[in-house]
């Protein structure tokens, strides 16, 4: 059972390994994807896009009170 699992794992690993190794234009695309994801999550999300309600309030009750205040004042 364990051998079967390891064999399957080995096949999947080499499937992806060979795939990535044999890429041509794909290497450039992966670089773009990684840079893009870094800008999105490590820069934009972290520094510019905090969740407004989650960062201001601790509980859902506080959040709902705040939104009701916003919607009714």
């Amino acid at each position: 059972m364990f051998d079967l699992f390891m064999e399957t794992f080995r096949k999947i690993f080499y499937f992806y390994y060979d795939g990535f190794k044999g890429m041509t234009v794909g290497k450039k695309l992966w670089l773009i994807i990684l840079i893009k994801l870094f800008i999105m999550f490590a820069v934009l999300k972290l520094f510019f896009f905090p969740d407004f309600l989650n960062s201001k309030f601790k509980t859902d009750k506080e959040r709902s009170d705040y939104v009701i205040e916003q919607l009714t004042h």
């Binding site: 999300k45 510019f48 896009f49 905090p50 969740d51």
Partner: peptide, 14 residues
Amino acid sequence: EFEFGTNWSNYSWF
């Protein structure tokens, strides 16, 4: 989705 949470919080909550 980032914008929903940051810029449109009343909407996202509602």
